[in-house]
Design a protein around this nucleic acid. Sequence first.
DNA 1: CATTGTGAAGCGTTTCACAGCC
DNA 2: GGCTGTGAAACGCTTCACAATG
Lengths: 234, 234
Amino acid sequence: MPPPPARRRIPDATVARLPIYLQILAEQSTAAIDNISSEGLAGLAGVNAAKVRKDLSYLGSYGTRGVGYDVGYLIYQIRRELGLNYDWPVIIVGAGNLGQALAGYGGFIDRGFPVGGIVDVDPAKFDVVVAGARVRPLDELSQIVESKDISIGVVAVPSSAAQDAADLLVKAGVTSILNFAPVILSVPVGITVRKVDLAVELQILSYHEQRRSVAQQNGQLQGAPADRGRGATA
Amino acid sequence: MPPPPARRRIPDATVARLPIYLQILAEQSTAAIDNISSEGLAGLAGVNAAKVRKDLSYLGSYGTRGVGYDVGYLIYQIRRELGLNYDWPVIIVGAGNLGQALAGYGGFIDRGFPVGGIVDVDPAKFDVVVAGARVRPLDELSQIVESKDISIGVVAVPSSAAQDAADLLVKAGVTSILNFAPVILSVPVGITVRKVDLAVELQILSYHEQRRSVAQQNGQLQGAPADRGRGATA
DNA sequence: CATTGTGAAGCGTTTCACAGCC
DNA sequence: GGCTGTGAAACGCTTCACAATG
């Protein structure tokens, strides 16, 4: 069993799929299935089998020709590559509807991202307990980040406050930000930002709906286009 | 002013960026700025100017050489292309933490996606009013979809119930689904599904954090990789 | 003369096809 | 014999570079 060196640089497209494979493998493992072929995994993930093999090949040669992949071992390897062997506590900025839903969302803690803190500007929210975490004043952000050695921040504040929140997070030492506000955050080089914008998702769906209705009007029964990024037209 | 025909097929990558441009243009419009260059727009969107021009060229030739783009007209054209000239009411399946947060999320209605209904299996939640919508029994899903002519469904139920929810939505006539459950939904050809998986987002951030710590240990001060899909490493 | 619109080059991702191996 | 691992081809997206033009 080799030590955990980060070997090659893994393509971004592959990194975005590894969590999907991981989730499927975990389900297989629960169902006491301990071997899976690239084709089997591909079917469950909704992708091409060659893509699965290429993706997994970036981690190393962990399959057995003629047999497939050992589910448990693959889980171990993907988790290692994604850095999921340790918990990454997150700090949530904003204890409104969304912030509270996020804090209460079981998926966070279950998957190794415990809520290390949740802060807000509104004194009315201080000390409200959300899923085991007490809401603290925004002023304490920096102290929480430092004391709990947090590197991931979640921005769940209104658009107008998002850039300030991001600035505070960066100043406190956070190096990755998950942004739910519909604004483009400006951050220093070296900070990773991912954005989840619900309105954008809906607008992309709207585009497909609009195409559908136009196609219908023209009597064109051509298939919808394949999607990209995340999501897919089945 | 030409009538609204969906002209060429627009690349998926472009469709995914149009909502971002739209949002920025709306901000500009509010600030009484009525002209913008591809470079200006690119700067605000965090992308390359050539990309902006190519993206916009798929809609038609709506810019003026030597001048730039008329903000209002561009907003109109992007909205038209995305099918945002009409409201698209959505139905939310699941009135738990997430479903309620989504229903209450102002961004939905503000951007042309009013909550046409929210349903749940749990009788304890019936008739709870969330952001103006009364939670209804799951049984009524089909009737709500039909009576309000809803084509977009939001799946905000636990993983175990997600496929059932999707099946119900499809049977009721919904053709686009926004899925928040961490499972791959299986739907008939022609139905568009997009997935928002918070754990996946965090795991991608985790990958970058992990690389950072490995790089630090090895004293390699190489830059972090550019991101793909959504989000970006600045 | 600043800025768009776009062929063409460049680059990363996907898919194919098959050699390698258990 | 069946399935992995991977060069190479195909594809789509991004970026360049510049002609077109208000």
